[in-house]
Structures are given as C-alpha cells and as structure tokens.
Amino acid sequence: MRVTQGCFSFLPDLTDADIRTQVQYCIDKGWAVNIEFTDDPHPRNTYWEMWSLPAFDVKDAAPIMLELDACRKVHGGRKYIRLSGFDSTHGWESVRISFLVGRPQEEPGFILTRNEGGGQAIQYTLQARPLPGASA
C-alpha cells in the first residue's frame, strides 16, 4: 500500500531536482528545513525522529541535500523519510510545509483492529503494520 501524506501527496514521488527546488523555496522563505524519519507512518503520528539538527542558518539547498543523502544511506528503502519547513516567525511558529522524500521498498500498510466493548459497542483502531526488518 503506497502511503501518501503531506504536500504533493497526489503527485508521483519527487525527484532529487524537485526536492532541491522545494528546499530552496523553503530556505528563501526563511523556514528551517528538517529531515525526519519513522517506521510508523500513521497519520496521527506527529513524532518522527529527526536526522541531524534543524538547518537554521543555511542559505543554500546543497547542505540539506547532503544530509538527506546521508539519511538515505542509513534508512533509505527501509523507513519513511520526510522534509519539513519550520517557520519560526511570531504568529506562525509551526511547520509550513512537509512532504515525503523516501519510503520503504515494501509498504505493509495498516491494520484495522475491531474491539468489542460493553453492550454492543465496537471500537476501531488503525495501526501501522510493522515494517519488514523491524525488531518489534
């Protein structure tokens, strides 16, 4: 199952040139670009792990692309990787853009668990299936 989320989710996966253009756009807007990865792509999971530090003082997309390559060397094809642009200006102070730049080769998708409660009540829980190679 091909997981989509964030910006450009209806487009085919971005090429490196596309990513570089987007990163430069974020930098020109004054946003700090972050690289994050996770093995739990649940849409409600906001806590992805961060790769290196947020790039606050960077003027050019080159260093971000270098870090992205480094991240891909470790997690590429095995975890989800995304870029986000954080706007620190007063009043915003939040993520302005976020898009996927990497996904596992095999995407097991989600599992829907049905719990029967008291009476006839039924609760549904959506959970990401563990990625292949994950320990738990």
Binding site: K59, A61, P63
Partner: peptide
C-alpha cells in the same frame, strides 16, 4: 560541518 553547511552556496 555546521560552519561548512552555513557557507555552502557562498
């Protein structure tokens, strides 16, 4: 590395 990243493009 942090300094080098800051300087890239310049």
């Amino acid at each position: 590395k942090e300094v080098l990243k800051k300087a890239m493009g310049g």
